[in-house]
Design a protein around this nucleic acid. Structure first.
Lengths: 209, 209
DNA sequence: CGATAATTTCAGAAATTTCTGAAATTAATA
DNA sequence: TATTAATTTCAGAAATTTCTGAAATTATCG
């Protein structure tokens, strides 16, 4: 590997983190390299920079494309493929979130749905199903939130982030005030999508530490 | 493996997903099993249920403890350890978020900080550093938001989720109205309702491109 | 203390993942 | 169509991770 020290640290770190992020070392390194390169790179430049085999680069670029994390570029009168990452880090974040959801969440959601359709054959199964319903409900709330928020343009999204929990406090206050003239316990906000499966009553009081 | 079919599907799925989630098959299976078990289980019961070696169970439980994902329980006059998961799925979510942040985000944040301290030795390094600064800024915004939001109690957190992006739209509207009497282009977050302190500065305008 | 039970450790076996080099494929050019 | 360049595929080598069984450790009890 032959890179300026500062860039090398970054590339090596991404390589090491790769496995924790569900990609492998080479994929991590290539991504890091493309991310900090001012110009798009072709496969052979990557081979050169990272000191790995041509075929490994090919497969890893393919993987990065499957993740939608790289862009393909072409130069006039040159038929090689050149690769970059999007410039906008917020765009990168969106892609990452989308792809991780697709790989790490959606399959579980669909397995849960399937299992929850079935008739429990015993008391143990009935209990298990109720636990799965709780998990399903939580995941659905999270993904609904995500589906809603992901459509925001960057500036609004950044605003939302910088507000953080402050909104919640605001809401509580508003709710408390509104409820003075209505009921006594506030239940904040409409949009509860209707298809949360039954059965997941209260999260058993036992908050367990 | 000898489990009711419905529970077996769930356990096997968690095993398969394990590698995508940064844990391994056994760890995933054990977690799933504990999660749907009404009573805490001891190591030998897990061995029995999943058909894996005692030592593997021991190591995997250790791993789950390192993740803070299981609770230790004891029965009177029995010196075996029994294991469960917390009842409250929101609590589980918090733990998961915290641990994944610790493993997947914090190390990168600290490497970025270190690299950004250094003096670039070339134009390429200067550019790379600027890219890393963008990444660092984004991660910092996200973790600040997370640090803020994670302290919310469950009910408020759920409220926040169910609101989703609506707040943002609300804010924009409010801002637009407020700005009528001030400047012409709304920059959101300029003025907040009474008890909302001024947020972190600008979201780093430099969205690249 | 010695006996027994529960658990952990760890070297190496087994399984899985990653990586390479050689061959095959694709596509542009003469 | 043959030639050359760019890229991909894939069998097996190399590296890494996971898992096991045997031995070691820890803790409790008589």
């Amino acid at each position: 590997m032959n890179l300026p020290p500062l860039i090398q640290s970054f590339v090596l770190h991404f390589g090491e983190m790769g496995s924790r992020w569900g990609i492998n070392r080479t994929v991590g390194q290539i991504y890091a390299l493309l991310y900090v390169s001012p110009e798009p790179l072709c496969a052979d430049e990557i081979v050169e920079a990272l000191g790995i085999s041509r075929s490994n680069v090919s497969m890893s670029l393919r993987e990065l494309q499957a993740w939608n994390l790289v862009l393909l570029r072409h130069l006039p009168d040159d038929r090689r493929d050149f690769f970059t990452t999007p410039d906008d880090v917020w765009q990168i974040l969106r892609t990452l979130a989308e792809e991780r959801k697709k790989r790490e969440v959606d399959p579980t959601l669909s397995v849960l749905r399937e299992i929850l359709m079935q008739q429990p054959g015993s008391e143990k199964e009935r209990y298990a199903q109720q636990r799965m319903a709780q998990m399903h409900g939580l995941i659905e709330q999270l993904t609904n939130w995500y589906d809603d928020v992901k459509r925001l343009e960057t500036e609004r999204l950044a605003n939302l982030l910088s507000l953080g929990s402050k909104i919640s406090r605001l809401l509580e206050t508003k709710d408390r005030i509104v409820s003075l003239g209505r009921r006594s316990k506030a239940k904040a906000s409409g949009s509860q999508p209707a298809d949360i499966p039954p059965g997941d009553g209260e999260p058993d009081g036992g908050a367990a530490r």
